[in-house]
């Protein structure tokens, strides 16, 4: 596992976008050779999307041969509802770049058969040859996607009933009316993300610092589902200074000492050479 500690949220956004740029460029996607990207929504990755759009406009990156899979979506929320993840992805990313509509996959929370929809999604990922890079954020309780505390660490894409805490936390997006917050969501499982060749988790802000500490300093624990990635061969956590508040000084110093190596990850060093870094 790598922990990359950067100055603030904007540097995290820039670093993450550069990392995606580097990975896609190295992969050299083309017809019949798609780079497969797993994508999150929410406030944390927003800056990364904006930087990627900049790169696209500057002609440094194309998404023509990129296939994407989004982590989650609410059940029963209209697709064009401003809080739906379809809406988010369209407005914050898809509409700005050259991705093919048929290659952008978002779970359909309005599917008549939700279980079949989850299976279809897993099958699509398999058909795409698995995910090359899964990007995620985490909640203050350490959840990844909608894998809330207690979720199985080998779970697959499925329907989840949301915990009361999540409804409470999300009601601010629904006019502070908890009855308007969808009760269920479709989400990829921890196992689904674990299958990706590489995983990048973005964590910014002091309110995520406890979750980060639990994720990297303590053991693997289903009450902090993101801690599962300690057992991933190629996981990296990218955080800002604020998110390190609950980490031990030793942990922070250890990873900061490696920062020169980490910068090489976005500097055009071939992926196979990076595998020997840690």
């Amino acid at each position: 596992m790598r922990l990359i500690i950067l100055e603030d949220a904007s540097v995290v956004a820039d670093w993450a976008a550069r990392f995606v740029l580097q990975r896609i460029t190295q992969f050299a996607p083309g017809p019949g050779r798609h780079f497969v990207l797993g994508l999150p929504t929410g406030g944390t990755p927003l800056g990364m999307y904006r930087r990627l759009i900049d790169f696209y406009k500057e002609g440094r990156i194309s998404f023509k041969y990129v296939t994407t899979f989004n982590m989650d979506e609410y059940v029963g929320l209209p697709r064009d509802h401003p809080e739906s993840y379809h809406y988010y992805m369209w407005n914050e990313f898809f509409k700005h770049v050259d991705i093919e509509p048929s290659n952008a996959h978002v779970l359909d929370g309005n599917a008549p058969d939700l279980v079949a929809e989850c299976k279809r999604f897993e099958d699509l990922i398999a058909a795409a040859g698995g995910v090359h890079l899964f990007i995620g954020g985490i909640g203050p309780d350490g959840h990844i996607a909608f894998n809330e505390p207690g979720s199985s660490l080998v779970s697959r894409t499925r329907v989840k009933t949301l915990a009361y805490d999540t409804l409470e936390a999300n009601k601010r997006f629904f006019g502070n009316d908890i009855s308007k917050v969808p009760r269920q969501a479709l989400t990829v499982g921890v196992g689904t993300v674990m299958d990706a060749k590489e995983v990048m988790i973005l964590i910014t802000g002091a309110h995520k610092s406890l979750a980060l500490a639990k994720a990297v300093e303590e053991g693997v624990n289903h009450m902090w589902t993101v801690s599962a990635f300690q057992q991933h061969a190629q996981a990296l956590f990218v955080c800002d200074e604020d998110a390190t508040l609950e980490l031990r000084v030793k942990t922070v110093k250890y990873f900061k000492a490696l920062s020169e190596e980490h910068q090489r990850m976005i500097a055009g060093v071939p992926v196979h050479e990076q595998r020997v870094l840690h």
């Binding site: 697709r79 064009d80 379809h86 809406y87 369209w90 407005n91 898809f94 509409k95 093919e100 509509p101 048929s102 952008a104 978002v106």
Partner: peptide
């Protein structure tokens, strides 16, 4: 365009 993208999958 959002509906064109997701439902019709056209550019």
């Amino acid at each position: 365009p959002e509906q064109v993208f997701y439902v019709e999958q056209l550019q």
